[in-house]
Simulated assay, not measured.
Amino acid sequence: MNITYLQEEIDKIVASSTKIDEKLQAICDFLEAEISYYDWVGFYFKNGDKEELKLAQFTGEPTEHTIIPFGKGICGQVAVSNENFVVQDVSEQDNYISCGWKVKSEIVIPIFVNGENIGQIDIDSHTANTFSAKDEELLMYICKKLSVIL
């Protein structure tokens, strides 16, 4: 994984003159295309004043999980903990919401705006034990860049 190249391309997307929704979709599409083991890439955001997340832009197979209550699944846990969550083997998680039988690992990184957790980027992989510190670094970089424009 060439972090420098990926960060430069993300910078171009974030700096583009397109609307926020289009930037988020472009990030999903770019990551899924560039990183072979990123099989589903999406954003969830807090759904107004409700204690739940709502699916926004994504790339990959459609999911029935368009609304996720806080605390439920990996995404819901990140909404409560405000911490990164890397799951190398989803079968070992008791509080896991399956998005499909192919998903073997997942990484979720929160997005903060003015210190508030407003959403997250969620990556699913069909490969177990695939995420590294480089993935976490890249996704944290993306979330930090997005926090400035959201």
Results as ranks from 00 to 15, higher is better:
S98L: 10
V78A: 00
E137H: 05
T4S: 15
T127P: 07
I118L: 03
S36A: 13
F70E: 01
D21K: 09
I20L: 15
K72T: 03
S132M: 04
F131P: 00
H65E: 12
S91G: 11
I3E: 08
E64P: 12
Q120N: 13
E9R: 15
K145L: 11
I13R: 11
E52C: 00
E34P: 03
Q7D: 01
V113F: 05
W101D: 13
V87R: 09
K134E: 15
E83K: 13
D29V: 12
E64K: 14
I3Q: 12
A33W: 10
L55Y: 03
L24V: 07
F112W: 09
P110A: 07
E9M: 10
Y44T: 07
V80T: 09
I67W: 00
D89S: 13
E137K: 09
A15Y: 07
K19P: 09
I142K: 02
G42L: 02
S105Y: 11
I74D: 03
V108L: 02
A128F: 09
V87W: 05
V148H: 11
S36N: 11
S16N: 11
E64F: 10
V86E: 12
I121H: 01
I121K: 05
A15F: 09
C28P: 02
G119V: 05
G76R: 00
D135P: 05
I107N: 07
